[in-house]
């Protein structure tokens, strides 16, 4: 694969080839999302990290006005399961509207559960950017 083709694939992954997070969240209601999880995978934090890496870029791409914040905590001790692994939906006034526990879940499961509760519209086919 050439340098340019690889780059195009990377860009398309953000804008068109990742299907699940191609949604426009209701900007009247939401100000953004806050995620908190560990740097390390143990105690079921892998799904949260994958959610951030796989889906958040696309979510940001189609919701340029929203603020997405990721807080990662360093926790080398595997016996310490006290670090929260949550996704918080932030409302317009800065309050937490909903909290979703991401522990022990795959990234696709997290996305599904988030979309079940959230107020959103699918991005129309005509608005999807293909490079």
């Amino acid at each position: 694969m050439s340098r340019v083709a690889r780059q195009l694939k990377f860009l398309n992954k953000i804008s068109s080839s990742t299907l699940e997070p191609q949604v426009v969240l209701n900007s009247q209601k939401y100000a953004g999302l806050n995620l908190t999880f560990q740097y390390q995978n143990h105690n079921g934090h892998m799904g949260a990290r994958k959610f951030w890496h796989e889906y958040m870029p696309t979510l940001q791409f189609y919701n340029p006005g929203l603020q997405f914040q990721v807080t990662r905590v360093k926790n080398e001790d595997k016996n310490n399961a006290g670090v929260p692994c949550v996704l918080q939906t932030i409302g317009k006034d800065g309050s937490v509207l909903e909290t979703l526990d991401m522990r022990d879940k795959q990234h696709s499961e997290i996305m599904q559960e988030f979309l079940e509760k959230a107020d959103y519209e699918k991005v129309p086919e005509s608005d999807i950017v293909r490079v």
Binding site: L8, M56, F61, V129
Partner: peptide
């Protein structure tokens, strides 16, 4: 160039790639 974009569109992609950092 195949990777050419106007600056505003490029910024949209770059902001998406940097999300959460």
């Amino acid at each position: 160039h195949p990777l050419y974009m106007p600056v505003d569109k490029a910024l949209r992609f770059l902001r998406a790639a940097e999300v959460g950092q």
